[in-house]
């Protein structure tokens, strides 16, 4: 990175670190923080959409759909979420390949599952065997995002279902009295009002999502945990210009601080949002703001 980095052995401590922390692999490490933030940015809206669909399904008057929605809502209650992460990442991959296999190679007669193998025809591989590395990585990341969205969608669906039930019944009765159809009263009355009730749950969910991001590591994505383990391990002079002992503890201390900072920033941001939404509301929170006087 810097011009004086050509011969690390001769450097003093500060310069040594300035060179060490700007090597190519460290740049990859810093980029993986971007991966985490990207995951958060993509997953949050997708999970919210999943949760919304789940909550609508759970409220459906058709029994089959309602059961489906309720099952989805309930699935995160009894089983550890990590199990879902490990399960979906393989299951989704296999499901996609299997569907593509049925479409692309209808003539294939051999069974797909053969003992300990899962074999689809070569044309049905996702991504294709000869695809560049970047495609493989993007596919892995997309599967990870989808897995996160499914699991967090179930959490969000819980929150939204509860929020929909918290909207005062009288509001909906009024809508019905005005002759609105079920659909109209849902979109025009229920949905706009439910967010106030959903916000505490959703902010809690955001914190949970932030803290779940290191699980990307379990899904095979090269994330911050992966790099912290790689970079922190003991390096001997034979393989690197910057030999050091086992520094993994310090790398993970760094990650710990990163997450604490992220949590703190989120807390402050969500508190501001909540203040804004409660401003002028006829709730205890709104009254408290009024008592504080004009801010």
């Amino acid at each position: 990175m810097f011009s004086y980095c050509t011969d690390p052995d001769t450097l003093d401590r500060i310069r040594w670190f300035s060179c060490y922390l700007t090597t190519g692999v460290h740049m990859n490490f810093y980029k993986s923080f971007g991966t985490v933030l990207l995951l958060l940015a993509v997953t949050a809206p997708v999970a919210l959409a999943f949760g919304f669909i789940g909550a609508i399904a759970a409220r459906s008057s058709i029994l089959a759909i309602s059961l489906l929605g309720r099952t989805y809502t309930a699935m995160v209650r009894g089983v550890p979420d990590i199990a879902y992460f490990l399960f979906f990442v393989i299951a989704l991959d296999q499901a996609l390949e299997w569907v593509k296999h049925r479409v692309v190679c209808p003539d294939w007669t051999e069974p797909v599952r053969q003992g300990a193998n899962f074999l689809v025809c070569p044309a049905a591989k996702i991504p294709m065997g000869n695809a560049p590395q970047a495609i493989h990585e993007a596919y892995g990341f997309a599967i990870a995002v989808f897995t996160f969205a499914i699991v967090f969608g179930a959490f969000a669906s819980n929150v939204l279902y509860g929020a929909m039930r918290s909207v005062p019944r009288a509001q909906l009765e009024t809508a019905e009295a005005y002759g609105m159809t079920r659909r109209q009263s849902f979109w025009r009355i229920l949905v706009p009002q439910m967010w106030v009730y959903a916000l505490p749950g959703l902010s809690n969910l955001w914190m949970v999502l932030v803290k779940a991001t290191p699980l990307l590591f379990l899904l095979g994505v090269e994330d911050i945990v992966y790099w912290a383990r790689e970079l922190g391990g003991t390096k001997t002079p034979r393989f690197t210009d910057y030999p050091h002992g086992d520094w993994r503890m310090w790398y993970f201390l760094g990650l710990l601080v990163f997450y604490l900072a992220l949590t703190r920033v989120s807390e402050i941001g969500l508190e501001r949002l909540m203040r804004r939404l409660t401003h002028g509301q006829a709730t205890a929170g709104g009254d408290a703001l009024r008592r504080e006087g004009p801010a």
Partner: peptide, 22 residues
């Protein structure tokens, strides 16, 4: 309480393991 609730358990495990190792 902030330290343990504000950071992921997964990272806590990693950090603690390498701390104990040192």
């Amino acid at each position: 309480i902030f330290l343990f609730r504000g950071s992921p358990l997964f990272i806590q495990f990693f950090f603690a393991y390498f701390l104990f190792l040192s």
